[in-house]
């Protein structure tokens, strides 16, 4: 058991895995954040529905880009995953609240 977990830890500490994990957080968690931000803005912005959808969707790509940059700028990939997922969860809760 101990050997097994050590092997896992070694694998997780490998640079290639770190990079893959970081890229994963940028691509998937980043998208999740952009999607929830888009969904929230679409119902929360004080405009006509179709207008707020337009604004929300147009801005969501900025959110995505910033999230991806964030993923690569924090010290550890675990933190990138954690922060982005937490932020998305927060936004999702807000969507449930507003909608």
């Amino acid at each position: 058991m101990l050997v097994e977990s050590k092997r896992w830890r070694a694998l997780l500490a490998k640079p290639s895995f770190m990079i893959a994990s970081r890229a994963g957080s940028a691509i998937f968690a980043g998208y999740l954040l952009a999607a929830t931000a888009c969904g929230l803005m679409a119902i929360a912005l004080p405009m006509a529905a179709a207008d707020s959808v337009l604004v929300a969707t147009m801005l969501s790509f900025t959110v995505y880009a910033c999230a991806a940059l964030y993923s690569f700028s924090v010290p550890s990939s675990t933190r990138a995953w954690r922060d982005l997922l937490l932020a998305s969860a927060g936004l999702y809760l807000l969507i449930l609240l507003v909608g």
Binding site: A35, T36, C38, L40, A49, S52, S60, I95
Partner: peptide, 21 residues
């Protein structure tokens, strides 16, 4: 680059329509 994403944005990011409509 940005406007390129905008041209197909409803395909990439349909979530505004999901929540608002």
């Amino acid at each position: 680059t940005y406007t390129g994403l905008i041209t197909l944005m409803m395909m990439y990011m349909p979530w505004g329509v999901v929540t608002a409509f």
